[in-house]
């Protein structure tokens, strides 16, 4: 721990060999740690390219030498991937659109207006955001089954929208609050109506915020497993996480084709990783904003 400050001193004062050596040492530790941490992701990609015969050999192959995309072709040919992909895409699109619309309106309300009940609403949003899915899924199952919406896109989309909308409101609130109202007022001085000022000045500035929140909502829905497990019991209505879980479940009873499982995992993970890289910074600051500002 003293090393932290050592490093800083090293930069500030004349670099002495002792300190340089410690920096090299820490850098080596850093590389080793990074390699360990990324190993599971690498192993997923590596195994996805190898045949099951190679994977079952006594000594593991650490490089995909002689690998092929056969596992991916087999997963596509299995016939269950595309229906699950379709299900996930449709649900994600519905939820992202609803979520952005609802959250945008609510974020406007709490950051541009002071009204009675505002504080209660903010409190409710924050509290609901913390509620665990496991604490409600029995009741949500019952709700959907009583109106015949189990295994349906509509049913789960409503549940997802409700579970994602609180954090989206919170995130967008930050963006709206970051745009000074004076900009709108200046536009109004120049003769625009309040609505026009909002649409022409504030809304375009909000676009990055809407994109970030939309991607966040997408990731939540794309990865969600718990609620889906409960309210989508039919295999035919499985989303991607449920479809992928089906592979593990088989492994308990019969030999699993791990090459295909890893190919399937890769297919589920890659779009998420790409999207995630876009929003990571904003997500961190959204969750710990109060603390990191300094």
């Amino acid at each position: 721990m003293t090393a932290t400050t050592d490093g800083r001193v090293a930069r500030a004062s004349r670099p002495r060999p002792r300190i340089r050596r410690s920096k090299v040492l820490y850098s080596i530790v850093g590389v080793v740690v990074a390699l360990i941490w990324v190993f599971p992701v690498y192993w997923m990609l590596n195994s996805s390219l190898l045949s099951n015969v190679v994977l079952q050999e006594a000594t593991p192959s650490f490089l995909p030498v002689g690998g092929s995309f056969a596992n991916f072709t087999a997963v596509f040919a299995g016939g269950t991937f595309f229906p699950a992909l379709g299900m996930s895409v449709v649900i994600a699109l519905i939820v992202v659109v609803l979520c952005l619309l609802f959250a945008f309106l609510a974020a406007l309300a709490i950051s541009r207006f002071r009204f009675r009940g505002r504080k209660a609403f903010v409190l409710a949003v924050l509290l609901i955001q913390m509620l665990p899915a496991e604490g409600l899924f029995i009741a949500q199952y019952k709700l959907l089954s009583s109106v015949g919406l189990l295994n349906s896109v509509i049913g789960i989309s409503v549940l997802y929208t409700a579970s994602v909308v609180p954090f989206t409101i919170w995130m967008l609130r930050g963006f709206v609050a970051g745009i000074p109202i004076e900009l709108e007022e200046a536009a109004m001085v120049d003769g625009l109506s309040r609505t026009q000022a909002f649409l022409r000045i504030t809304f375009p500035l909000l676009a990055p915020g809407l994109v970030a929140s939309g991607v966040y909502a997408f990731l939540q829905v794309w990865n969600e497993f718990t609620i889906a497990l409960v309210v989508l019991p039919d295999n035919s209505s499985a989303t991607l996480p449920l479809w992928l879980q089906g592979f593990i479940q088989q492994s308990a009873s019969r030999a699993t084709d791990w090459g295909q499982v890893m190919a399937a995992s890769t297919l589920v993970a890659v779009p998420v990783i790409i999207f995630f890289l876009f929003v990571q910074g904003r997500m961190t600051s959204g969750l710990v904003s109060g603390a990191v500002k300094g």
Binding site: G30, V31, V33, A34, L35, W37, V38, P40, V41, W43, M44, S47, W222, N223, F225, L240, P241, L244, Q245, F247, I248, S251, W258, V261, M262, A264, S265, T266, V268, A269, V272, I273, F276, L277, Q280
Partner: peptide
């Protein structure tokens, strides 16, 4: 390098991460 590898681990969807770890 460390940040990129941590981001990759963070971005893994939970079910995909679980299948990898089970493997």
């Amino acid at each position: 390098f460390l940040q990129i590898t941590l981001l990759l681990a963070w971005a893994m969807p939970v079910v995909a991460a679980m299948t990898v770890w089970t493997w």
